[in-house]
Design a protein around this nucleic acid. Structure first.
Lengths: 334, 334
DNA sequence: CTGAAAGCGCTTACAG
DNA sequence: CTGAAAGCGCTTACAG
């Protein structure tokens, strides 16, 4: 298929009748090259079908233009939306993204990060798996690679592994207040792995607002899936008939609960209110349309792209912790 | 952060008291190195925190261990499930995946593929955007990189750009037959961009079975989103009251239609039947649970991983076209 | 404005 | 079994 080896700058130099240094300068758009020469070189490159070899260039320079993206659960739309937004924003800035899904497995994560380091990524964006992440981050720190924890703060060393994420705590505060404002008397919190950082944060605002209102909280922690939400719809109806509103850990749980309610013939909206978290794209399409805390993960992705590129190219180290604003999108489910 | 430059095989060689060739041989697990020497070298590597530099190695060898994955719509769970499955399978075989979402834009696709070639990917897996893909595939063919079209056959040169995908045509055949078997009298086909390859295939089996049964088809082509499905639920009820069953282009359309029906108070199941396509994870969680054509894209991802690695490592070129079996998963929506 | 030369970190014959 | 040397395709001072 490939009849001849790929042309190099030497081939281009020959064809254009210049030295290879000159070709290299053209490649870098150096102003030190006469316009006419530049034309000749570009022309020769086109004729030969020359393609730049970044790996070779990278051996002399530093920045390979490759960024490692490590995600705990790529099947969850929340993370997918983030990943695609980040990838596209980085591509605009000339970076390619090496991706890995760790499926919430810290071991897999350590292995994939190791492979990426060998592949010469220049920086990492990680939404870490819960669990023992020491191996993962130790090897990154040893390699001295700019790295951000996003969406979840799992490693405490945020001075060297800065964290950025939506203000989950505020989100649950707004959402809970909204439910009370709409007349809810007994609000449950459903879903989220018990004890995990994000669960804590998404529960804090809820507990805070209920506390202030003198209402006893009702927490049904568990998984973060549609199936769990569906199951809890039954449990709530059966074991907690007085509960008239639910703040779900995320939209998947909330959408599952919507399904469960439809299935049981329980009306959602005025009587029984459901609020989700994340505002993934499906939320607006559900019936009833789901009220949700918008984390705007697409714009978050663009922000992170800018942040990591600034770190890489201008040594601007991000603050240890950065929270982005969230807002409540009110729809028919509440 | 990085106090000293990364150690190289020379540093390791010094520390272990051998030549750098020996270190290189250890790295490749060559049997030509005495066990004792190997131990010393490994020990030195551990002490220095040596990490292998693939980019450097790749300059002498060929296979960089990087594979480019280009996807037309990563926000669609069908493609996400494929991408994650492929990534994880390739990682098991020692390959890293560079990913790009093209958002159905052929220009973006050409640009991202160009960037990946520069980054030295050794092969491509592409679910191509519809449109003018000549630029994309020409540059790949020029570079002589093993490349498969998956899920969609957009470029006709399948001898050099082999295609693999589920047997969509058979899927729609089975699904349509199922609807007729269940007593449907008037079956509509809803969704899918008119004229696109996958839409054609998913319609062929439908048209074929209806033709054989002497039933007039009813095709409402359009988008591939939940929103479109929801809208069509209304249109069907209003303009085609005799229509008692729908085969949807994909699960997103079908789930949208389920939402739309719930919204209008139209019962789905015995009376009005809905079947989706792809069997994404959400299908089973919907209410009513959605009958769908399972493409088993997760196992498809593993198959493709094996195929491309065989091509890369053993020059086993895949057949121009390969179709994987599909099956109908019957649930309550029909 | 352009050339000759060294070097990035590896692998690979080739001697020994 | 191990060393010395050349080379992968680039960039970068340094001369001219």
């Amino acid at each position: 298929m490939q009849l001849t080896r790929r042309p190099t700058i030497i081939d281009v130099a020959h064809k254009a009748g210049v030295s290879k240094s000159t070709v290299s300068l053209v490649l870098q758009n150096s102003p030190a090259v006469r316009e006419e020469t530049r034309q000749q070189v570009r022309h020769a490159m086109a004729e030969l079908g020359y393609v730049y070899n970044r790996a070779a260039a990278n051996m002399r320079m530093s920045n390979a233009g490759l960024i490692g993206l490590v995600i705990n659960d790529l099947r969850n739309p929340f993370f997918t939306e983030f990943a695609t937004s980040l990838q596209m924003a980085l591509s605009d800035r000339g970076y390619a993204v090496v991706i890995a899904n760790t499926d919430e497995d810290a071991q897999v994560q350590a292995q994939m990060v190791g492979a990426m380091v060998e592949h010469g990524v220049s920086a990492f964006i990680i939404s870490p798996a819960y669990g023992d992440v020491a191996a993962t981050f130790d090897s990154i720190l040893r390699a001295g690679l700019p790295t951000m924890q996003v969406l979840r703060r799992v490693d405490a060393r945020t001075d060297r592994l800065p964290f950025a994420g939506p203000d989950y705590c505020d989100g649950s505060r707004i959402a809970t207040r909204h439910l009370l404002d709409r007349g809810a008397k007994r609000v449950a919190f459903v879903g989220g792995l018990d004890g995990r950082a994000v669960t804590q944060e998404r529960m804090t605002g809820y507990l805070e607002v209920l506390g202030a209102a003198g209402i006893t909280p009702l927490v049904l922690a568990g998984k973060t899936s549609r199936a769990f939400g569906r199951e809890m719809a039954r449990v709530l109806a059966k074991d907690h008939p007085d509960c008239d509103a639910v703040l779900c850990f995320n939209d998947l749980v909330a959408l599952g609960m919507l399904s469960g309610c439809t299935e049981m013939g329980r009306q959602v909206g005025a009587g029984f209110k459901v609020v989700g978290f994340d505002d993934i794209e499906d939320a607006a399409e559900a019936y009833p349309a789901l009220t949700s805390v918008r984390c705007d993960v697409a714009s978050f992705g663009r922000t992170i792209a800018a942040t990591i590129v600034d770190w890489l190219e201008h040594q601007i180290v991000p603050p240890p912790e950065h929270r982005t604003a969230v807002e409540l999108i009110v729809r028919n489910s509440s």
